[in-house]
């Protein structure tokens, strides 16, 4: 007896990894080497999709965070957490990939270029969201903190994207249809589509885990002195709200 969402998540992952294998096979063994970067240029086919995946997951988390604060439903809270975590996994991958690409091409593993700096801030900011979540026990307050932190951290997403336009940068500008030769564009697009499936699959499964945790927690709160969160919400307000004696 497996729930449908588990199967959907597993199937999305299977499709995603299979598609990515095809894209990467073409990228590694069929596509030509890049004129200047040689074989090292093949890192393109994993690095750029990872970046798109991370930014899309964070965008989804941003929307879920708004949904969480608007409705107060734990499903949105679980969805926010799921996409923040999956996005952060991809962002850390992105930093490692970029570093290993930068060494042979630029000549350094790391430099405080605007794109690199804002990407590191991205990983740190959403890492803080996940940490914050672990530190708060009271469900309603935790959902609120997660959502607010996600919305604030999301500010960095457009900044990462536009960093190469706004500032002098060592990092290459955003790739587009004209700047990538077609035999290289094909594996790039295949891998990009693949990572959408993988991101969706990871999010759904992580969502299931988080939702189950929240449901279990409500049925049996960890802390014995913790009142029912549903009733706590109104009486024990966060710091900024005015305390009314009732």
């Amino acid at each position: 007896m497996t729930h449908r969402s588990y199967i959907v998540g597993a199937v999305l992952l299977a499709i995603g990894f299979a598609t990515m294998a095809v894209g990467h096979f073409i990228g590694l063994f069929v596509a030509p080497r890049e004129a200047m970067m040689g074989d090292v240029g093949r890192i393109l086919y994993v690095h750029v999709p990872t970046a798109w995946g991370a930014l899309l997951l964070y965008s989804g988390a941003f929307i879920a965070a708004i949904g969480s604060m608007w409705t107060g439903r734990r499903g949105w809270d679980a969805a926010t957490t799921a996409m923040v975590e999956a996005g952060t996994v991809m962002t850390f991958l992105l930093l490692v990939q970029g570093s290993l690409w930068a060494r042979p091409t630029w000549g350094t593993y790391w430099t405080w270029d605007p794109r690199l700096t804002t990407s590191a801030v991205l990983a740190a900011a959403f890492g803080v969201v996940l940490l914050l979540r672990r530190l708060i026990d009271q469900p309603a307050r935790r959902a609120m903190a997660t959502s607010v932190a996600t919305i604030v951290a999301f500010v960095d997403v457009p900044i990462v994207y536009f960093s190469v336009k706004w500032w002098n940068s060592l990092h290459q500008p955003v790739s587009n249809l004209g700047s990538v030769d077609s035999p290289m564009m094909q594996p790039l697009l295949i891998a990009a589509i693949a990572i959408m499936f993988i991101g969706a699959g990871l999010s759904i499964l992580r969502f299931r885990i988080e939702l189950a945790r929240l449901v279990a927690e409500e049925a049996a709160p960890d802390l014995p002195d913790m009142p029912d969160p549903l009733h706590l919400e109104g009486s024990d307000k966060p710091v900024q709200a005015e305390g009314s004696p009732s």
Binding site: M1, T2, H3, S5, Y6, G9, A10, L13, L202, L205, R206, R208, I209, L211, A212, R213, V215, A216, E217, E218, A219, A220, D222
Partner: peptide, 22 residues
Amino acid sequence: LLFQSRSAPAQADGTTHSQPGS
């Protein structure tokens, strides 16, 4: 995630499968 979410209770009837002290 595949491993952990398999053992996770299905969302609809989750409340009956709570694990105290999880």
